[in-house]
């Protein structure tokens, strides 16, 4: 077991080790033992190469692979685009790796490519995103987005003093991760914070300028607006600009997902008030472990949901919170 594990990950990890201990007679798998998987090669294909979330995930996966003594080759799409990711998958398939960790950028379009690579004997582990076909992948590891939405709602409600209106401005409907976050957010608000009026969700199509004008219009219609849950970084930027122009910065609390470097800066500056950080590092590490377990024909956990943590200005200096900050480079 690694020292100084964050609470969420360590429990998940401990559970995984316990499963291994129960089912596998060998000692391989936990505690950095590299026995048995030395010659195996792994590949990792991320969704967007330059995204700090995926960079953090990649760094952790590389560390874990090094520790387990396997070779990990990293690839990633330049954009969130099926047409960009599919050729990468096909070229990786040609090398017949023992295991493939992938964040598919589409729930359906990549299924044939992944089916093919799986049939050729490669153990596929889906990290962060998923495909709808349940036969793909030996394990699926992602953040529990509904829980993340609830975490955001709890923190935001606390900052709002449990009164006023709250609104969600998201990117676009029909994205499984953000839809789940909104669902969790709305459920938590309705169930446990009756003093807060929940306004209908708005979508800005990833355009900060649209988010800025939407938040100003909402402010005009609902002067008691006290909190906003932003779908992503671009949206959060637009919202904080809109609030600043309307002279409401600080009065309306803004919660956003992820903990990218510029979001941390925004938290320090007070343009954002709550960050709900995922744990991409844990996803990467678990991905490597699960792939190796599958290759070694050991027990594999089919679904793993990693925890999320709420970062505010008050707790951002604590070391057990700081390690959730995403990295821009390894």
């Amino acid at each position: 077991m690694r020292p100084t594990n964050p609470t969420g990950r360590s429990t998940a990890f401990a559970g995984f080790c316990a499963v291994l201990a129960l089912t596998a007679a060998t000692t391989a798998g936990c505690g950095g033992d590299s026995g048995g998987s030395g010659s195996k090669s792994l590949d990792l294909i991320t969704g967007v190469k330059s995204d700090p979330f995926y960079i953090t995930m990649t760094c952790a996966a590389q560390q874990e692979a090094k520790k387990r003594g396997v070779k990990l080759t990293v690839n990633g799409s330049a954009q969130w685009d099926v047409a960009v990711q599919r050729p990468i998958i096909d070229s990786v398939a040609a090398t017949h790796p023992g295991g493939l960790l992938i964040s598919p950028v589409d729930t359906a379009a990549l299924t044939p490519s992944l089916q093919q690579i799986q049939n050729a004997g490669t153990k596929v582990v889906l990290v962060d995103t998923e495909v709808s076909d349940a036969s793909i992948g030996v394990s699926r590891i992602s953040s529990d987005n509904e829980a993340g939405g609830r975490t955001a709602a709890k923190s935001l409600a606390q900052l709002m003093g449990d009164k006023g209106s709250a609104i969600v401005i998201s990117v676009k409907p029909g994205v499984s991760t953000t839809d789940a976050r909104i669902k969790g957010f709305n459920e938590e608000m309705k169930a446990n914070h009756p003093g807060i009026t929940l306004l209908p969700v708005l979508y800005d199509n990833d355009l900060p300028a649209t988010a800025a004008s939407q938040i100003q219009s909402t402010l005009a219609a609902h002067p008691d607006l006290g909190g906003v849950f932003a779908g992503n970084t671009n949206t959060a930027q637009g919202i904080s600009t809109g609030l600043q122009a309307a002279g409401k910065q600080g009065k309306v609390k803004v919660a956003a997902f992820d903990a990218e470097p510029d979001e941390i800066t925004a938290l320090t500056n007070g343009t954002l008030d709550v960050l709900v950080a995922q744990d991409p590092g844990a996803i990467g590490r678990q991905g490597v472990d699960q792939a190796l377990a599958a290759i070694d024909k050991k027990k594999v956990t089919a679904h793993i949901g990693t925890d999320m943590v709420a970062i505010t200005k008050a707790n951002m200096d604590q070391p057990d919170i700081k390690k959730f900050f995403y990295q821009a480079a390894c």
Binding site: P208, A212, Q237
Partner: peptide, 9 residues
Amino acid sequence: YFGTTSIAG
């Protein structure tokens, strides 16, 4: 106005 380059926006 926005204080950032918003490459994706």
